[in-house]
Amino acid sequence: MRRNLRIFREFFRTCLVEELEYRSEFLGNLLSSLFGIAIAILTIQIFFFQTDQLGGWPYADVLVLLGIFNTLQGLIDFALKPNMSRLLQNIRKGTLDYVLTKPVDSMFFVSFRHLVFWRLVDVLLGLGLVAYGLWVKRYVPTLSDLLIFLVTLFASLVLIYALWMLLMTTAFWVIKIDDLSFVFNSFFETTRFPIGTYRGWLRIVLTYVLPAALITSTPASALLGNWSVGATLITVVVAGIFLWLSRLFWRYALRSYTSASS
């Protein structure tokens, strides 16, 4: 773990150098992020013209949820997404061979080698929105709220990572799908609203099969003081199980990997 952290620091440094080589249009990206979050808030407000509850959640709570959604989205775009297209390329061109000869966990390497820094702006904006939601509700989280929030947020990150890797690993067989991240996004978008918004089989799937319900709702509830030890434990355990599954799947995929011949 400590070792991986050191390696991650090196990835961080290298990517910073890489990004400075091609100075991205920081201002333009900042504007687009701001615009995106403004539209999201506006959409919520339109809902609340008609009703004062969304899936059982009042306005301020939904803002907190949306803030967490944005934070997680930012983190996905920061670390996971930039690596996806490269994994596909590595598999197709056979340069995954180099990754596999390195004395480093290959799953760790392919998921964090490339980072896009300006996406961290979304994380900051998301956290800002969370703070704003709390202010609207006039609620100051207690220390234990904050602690449970951090635990569940971390569990959510692990869960997202595991689901993401499960999907990305299919690239070993369907090496022609160029945008697997589209599939993931469609799923992840469902966590933008409280799980109560969904009805019927969709709700069942999102709760029990792909636990989208846990991803944003649990940390948001925790921060708003509505947590229980049971729900927190479940989130942590589910995250752990999915991470374990994704590792199993990755190992299985490597076994059947027949790199492109030279």
Binding site: E10, T14, E18, T95, K102, V104
Partner: peptide
């Protein structure tokens, strides 16, 4: 592998060396 490269394309080779330094400890 003569036909495949591990060097990071957009930045100087020294950066790849430093990544390897971290990876190989």
């Amino acid at each position: 592998m003569g036909q495949k490269s591990q060097l990071i394309w957009d930045i100087p080779p020294m950066e790849t060396f430093l990544v390897n330094k971290a990876v190989y400890e």
